[in-house]
Nucleic acid binder design. Structure first.
Lengths: 151, 151
DNA sequence: ATACTTGCAAATGATTTGCCAGTGT
DNA sequence: ACACTGGCAAATCATTTGCAAGTAT
């Protein structure tokens, strides 16, 4: 692994701040760490570890390194992941608008909503079942309007 | 695979009816098919393919056969499965009280509830998001009362 | 300098598939 | 009889781990 980063990501803003924050907390900002974060900054939405590696044309950038960095960054609260049905975990940056998800298990479409939009639901679940529901890690799964009609 | 079935399951009632139903629809009731169904009839709750094989001391009963039969039986509507967080799919008989689930992602505890208990929730989700939520295949995930306190 | 990280290969866990032999109807 | 199934081995997919070599601080 000797190539420079694929693209300077400066224009997305913020990534250097993440590097600084990591360093100031005593963590090392290594090449794979940077590549993972750059891919996540580049991404339009939640992406898999495999996508992160594929979207990064740097020889020697290994899935295992991506996973190790994803785990570390998640523990540090920089990123998080969601399980959308079957399929791999999808990772995203924390902070850029916390979201919770509704997944259509027929067409796979994902609706991202503001947690506050689900608060009434959460309250009802809390009241009825004494559970604090969270839909940011595992989404609400069902059928979207379109697919519900086709059933 | 030449051994007789591990245990006669007659006392659980109903399994012979399932065999008859399968045969009358032109499906073959083979040894692995019986073993899978027997394990599911025996089980207290949803169990994994691995548990099914482990709970069945019949040499030559292979995971692949268990999976093939689980898939078939599911397509026939005899069984279904749920994804409880990480970990393998858990299979159960259909009909013996349809349930939907709430999973505590901290302690792993699962609460099974009658679908009707979630209908108000479903209505709210339908109203607010135009989604028909179903929690029988993917549960509601969050924190149970106990774990919510410890957070 | 040195502890933390990596690259790479091999292991893991859940599940699937290929293929030919076996069996339920 | 014969198509549907099974056993078994190997493949797949997502992810993890072991370990010696590399590197960020």
């Amino acid at each position: 692994m000797t190539e420079p980063a694929a693209t300077p990501i400066r224009e997305y803003g913020g990534i250097e701040d993440v590097f600084d924050a990591l360093r100031s907390e005593g963590h090392r900002v290594t090449t794979p760490c940077r590549l993972v974060l750059e891919a996540l900054f580049r991404a339009a939405g939640p992406i898999s570890a495999q996508q992160i590696v594929e979207d990064t044309p740097v020889v020697g950038f290994e899935p295992s390194s991506a996973y190790r960095n994803l785990e570390r960054l998640e523990q540090l609260g920089v990123i998080r992941h969601v399980h959308l049905g079957h399929g791999p975990s999808l990772y995203m940056l924390v902070g850029s608008g916390e979201k919770e998800f509704l997944l259509c298990e027929r067409c796979g479409r994902v609706k991202s909503v503001d947690p506050s939009a689900l608060d009434p639901l959460r309250e009802q679940i809390e009241r009825d079942f004494d559970y604090r529901a969270r839909f940011g890690h595992f989404p609400i799964v069902g059928l979207c309007a379109t697919c519900a009609k086709h059933e």
